[in-house]
Structure formats: structure tokens, C-alpha cells
């Protein structure tokens, strides 16, 4: 096929050159990867989860490899919203790629306040609300696993910003559709799923948990089937655009998520395997479209024959 396939997608008023973004917490603030890839080849950069005040995070060790994945208990360490604005935004402003800012709070008021601060930043294309912080004792666990709490947090954020509000769901729930529906009722613009699954690793030799925090969030290829299932269930039940996340390491994985109903995807742990993973996935998706005579990637969204 001679013509370049159309890779662009749009949702919630956000226009992306292609559907591939980086997942929060796995790509820092973008700059860390600038020497290893072209940041202007991907659809969007999603930055590390921010809170109102800087956050220390958990003791070490914080990460451990597990079969086909890894556990992390970073504990949402971050520079805080003010340092983000003064230290990280200036670089991001120079990159011609939409920036989606992930954030969280310990209270409704904190969510609202951070959302308000982000609302004032022209560099921010959309906000992604993390309501699913599985490692933090006072963090999002309540919001992310209770539909009523999720509803009120999304409402609070909604009232504080006119930017597109993407809500990132926790998979550590019995019924993901119920959570998605609560967010839709609170006027979220889009959903991203999934965050990490709570897990654990044991060190037999020392008879101790590997992580200082005991439990951590599982990510990587090991969680892909669960993520696909959740994207598929939610896409059939809720009328909101979905960003599929979980174990995507190559173009095939990404395309599977589109078929299951995702409008876009995020690449997380794969950035650690190869720092240019997201760019490669964009290139390989384009190659797939060419080879299969698909003119527009949007033809694949939700095209699962099930």
C-alpha cells in the first residue's frame, strides 16, 4: 500500500497522532527517555503520578522481578505539583507531543486542589486521575475499590477542571464494570485500565517478603490477559473511550487491546525492557496496517468478532 495509513485517534477532545502513550510511573517526566527515542513519534506522554505535596514513597527494596512481570512498591514517590510545574513542565513544553498528567490525592480536597492547579497549565492536554494506589496506606485504595468513593472523587476533579478527565481504574475489584459505570455517572471523559494488580513475592532463603512494603503492584506481560478481559468487559458496558494498559510489549499486544475495545493504549513496564519500546510499537503498528491493507487504525477499535 502506497498511502500512509491513518494512525490518528481522537477521544474526549484530545487529538493524538497515534494511539500509543507511555504509562504513568514508567516514563518519569519524559526527559529521562529523550536520549533513547524520539518523543515526538508517540501519541502522548503520561507523567509520573503527582500529589499536592512531595511524597517520600516506600522503603527499599521497592521492586522485584517475577515470572513475566515485576512487582513495584514505589509508594507514589513524586516531586509534588509545584516542583512539577517549575522543574518538569519547561522541558515538556519543548516537546511537540501532548502531555497527560497523572495525579492522586489522599483526600477529596487534595484531588480537587491538584486538578485545579493542573487546569491552569496550557501544557497539559488532559488529566489522568489515579484512584487506584495499591501501595499507599492512606492512598487511593478506598477511592479505587468503592463505587461511591470513586464517584465523589471524579465529581470533585470534574468540578475543578475543564480539561478532559481520564480516570484510571484499579483492577483490584470484584466488578470492574461497576467501577467504570460510577466514573461515567460522575462525568469522566475517558477511562484508562488497568493499574497494577496487588501481589507479593517471598524470599525463601531469608523467610521474608522481597519488598519492604510486603505487597506491591504487579505489572508486565503477566497481567495482559486480565487487562484485556477488563477492557473488553468495560467497553461493552460503558459508553466511554478506553485507554488499554497492561503488559503491552509489542505492536501485536497493542492491536489486541484496540480490538477488545480500547481507543488508545499505554506502554508501561516495556519501557524498562527497551527504552524506545513505545516508539517501536508505533512503527510496528504502522507496518502491520500497511501489510494488511488497513487504511485507518480506527477500523480496528472494538472490531473483535465475539
Amino acid at each position: 500500500m502506497k498511502k500512509k495509513p491513518d494512525m490518528s485517534v481522537q477521544f474526549a477532545g484530545i487529538q493524538l497522532r497515534n494511539p500509543v502513550m507511555t504509562a504513568s510511573g514508567t516514563f518519569g517526566y519524559g526527559k529521562e527517555f529523550a536520549g533513547y527515542m524520539d518523543l515526538e513519534k508517540i501519541g502522548a506522554i503520561v507523567t509520573k503520578g503527582l500529589s499536592l505535596k512531595p511524597k517520600a514513597g516506600n522503603p527499599m527494596p521497592r521492586i522485584v522481578e517475577t515470572p513475566g512481570g515485576m512487582l513495584n512498591a514505589i509508594g507514589l514517590q513524586n516531586v509534588g505539583i509545584d516542583a512539577f510545574i517549575s522543574e518538569k513542565i519547561p522541558f515538556l513544553r519543548t516537546v511537540n507531543t501532548p502531555v497527560i498528567v497523572n495525579f492522586f490525592g489522599n483526600t477529596l480536597e487534595e484531588y480537587e486542589e491538584v486538578a485545579g492547579k493542573l487546569d491552569a497549565l496550557p501544557e497539559v492536554a488532559a488529566v489522568e486521575v489515579n484512584i487506584s494506589c495499591p501501595n499507599v496506606k492512606h492512598g487511593g485504595i478506598v477511592f479505587g475499590t468503592d463505587p461511591k468513593a470513586a464517584f465523589s472523587v471524579v465529581k470533585a476533579v470534574r468540578s475543578a477542571t475543564i480539561k478532559p478527565v481520564i480516570v484510571k481504574l484499579s483492577p483490584n475489584v470484584t466488578d470492574i464494570v461497576e467501577m467504570a459505570a460510577a466514573c461515567a455517572d460522575a462525568d469522566a471523559d475517558a477511562l484508562s485500565l488497568i493499574n497494577t494488580l496487588t501481589g507479593m513475592a517471598v524470599d525463601l532463603k531469608n523467610r521474608k517478603p522481597y519488598l519492604a512494603n510486603c505487597t506491591g503492584g504487579l505489572s508486565g506481560p503477566a497481567i495482559k490477559p486480565i487487562a484485556l478481559r477488563m477492557v473488553w468487559q468495560v467497553s461493552r458496558a460503558v459508553q466511554l473511550p478506553i485507554i488499554g494498559i497492561g503488559g503491552i510489549t509489542n505492536a501485536i499486544d497493542a492491536l489486541e487491546f484496540l480490538l477488545a475495545g480500547a481507543t488508545a493504549v499505554q506502554v508501561g513496564t516495556a519501557n524498562f525492557m527497551t527504552p524506545d519500546a513505545s516508539q517501536r510499537i508505533v512503527e510496528d503498528i504502522e507496518k502491520y496496517l500497511r501489510e494488511n491493507g488497513i487504511e485507518d487504525i480506527k477500523e480496528l477499535i472494538g472490531a473483535l468478532r465475539a
Binding site: K48, R62, I63
Partner: peptide, 16 residues
């Protein structure tokens, strides 16, 4: 030494 994932300062897995 520390357990590392990214090696480039992005994941915050390796702090001291």
C-alpha cells in the same frame, strides 16, 4: 547497588 528496573531515573525503584 540496588534493584533496578529502568536505569535512567524514571521508575524510582532504586533509591537510597
Amino acid at each position: 547497588e540496588a534493584n533496578m528496573a529502568c536505569g535512567v531515573g524514571a521508575c524510582l525503584g532504586c533509591v537510597t
